[in-house]
Amino acid sequence: MLQKIVLLGSGNLAHHLGRYFYKNGIIISQIFSRNKMTAQALAKKLDALVDSDLDQIVRKADAYILCVNDDSIKELSTQLSEILANDKLIIHCSGSKPISEINEFFINRAVIWPIQSFGAKSKIDWNEIPFFIEATNSCKDIVEQLCRQMNWKFHPIDSERKKLIHIAAVFANNFSNFNFIIAKEILSTLNLGIEVLKPLVESSQENIFINGPEESQTGPARRSDTKVVQMHLKELSKEFPHFKELYKEYSNLIMDYYKTKK
């Protein structure tokens, strides 16, 4: 059972993960971060040491969790390989990066990816979040035990399949959020806020998880109502020409999709 952890990073993920570990009895031995202000704020909440010098990293932790941006994982794990013993458990939390980003000097390497966006003020229900995990054979049991210890819903996965899950998440979450940015920009010209769409969106989201997205699709493209689609494209040409092609592409994709389903 893991009892002592070092967190590397002090951003939103480190804050949420660190507090959850601490709440569930895991000792956060140290916070390592280049950002002293955020690291000290987090360390104070977790009764942890804090440092920005890797040479001062705690050597006797059970695991080292890299809560850093994706492009820093490889470099940071390589730096750790020059300091720590090769049997230390090194974990990263990226959805887009494979387990091979962790330097192969370490025997015990793992990925624990919570499929969730972590904002500074997000309310996180850890028991509902799916976790996708990958680990070398030497530490697979330890990583799974940690997930059970934290009451997480976890799914073993390899790096290749994780790529597809990450792509699905980008479509469902990141692209849909940008659609709200577009909607907000359009509504702002009418002095309306995004909240006027809240009942519609909440009802649609509920239907997606009850009936499935295929059955929940509505709108002019779903009905193949080309007159309305063309009217919308004409209006977009006047006011929002930069969104016209996206609207057209969405409409064509939806109409083509449901033609094949007939």
Rank of each mutant, 00 (worst) to 15 (best):
I90V: 07
A39L: 10
S33T: 04
M37F: 02
E75H: 10
S138K: 12
D70H: 13
N86S: 13
Q56K: 11
E82G: 15
I83T: 10
K97L: 00
S94P: 01
E134M: 06
L84Q: 10
I90F: 06
Q116I: 05
I73Q: 03
A43L: 11
I133A: 09
E104R: 13
L54W: 02
K44I: 06
F118N: 02
D62T: 08
S81H: 10
A39Q: 11
D47L: 09
S100Y: 02
V50G: 03
L84K: 09
E104H: 13
Q56V: 08
S77L: 10
I57W: 04
D53V: 08
P114T: 02
V111K: 00
I107L: 14
T136C: 03
R109T: 02
D62P: 04
K74R: 15
C93E: 00
N108P: 05
S94A: 04
L66G: 08
G119V: 09
L49S: 05
S138L: 10
E82C: 15
K36G: 07
S72N: 14
Y64D: 07
L89C: 11
D47G: 09
D51Y: 06
I107K: 14
A63E: 02
A110M: 07
K60T: 11
K45M: 01
I57P: 03
E128R: 10
A135T: 03
K45H: 10
K97C: 01
S96A: 15
I112R: 00
R109L: 05
N127V: 05
T38S: 11
F132A: 07
K88S: 06
W113C: 03
D53Y: 10
I83V: 14
I115A: 01
L42P: 00
D87M: 08
E128H: 11
N108C: 12
R109W: 03
N69W: 10
G119Q: 12
E101R: 13
V50H: 11
S122C: 14
Q40I: 00
I115H: 01
F118G: 03
I129L: 08
S122N: 14
L46D: 00
D53P: 01
N137C: 11
L54F: 02
I91Y: 03
I102H: 01
P98M: 08
S138R: 08
V68R: 06
K60E: 15
Q79E: 15
S122M: 13
W113S: 02
E101I: 09
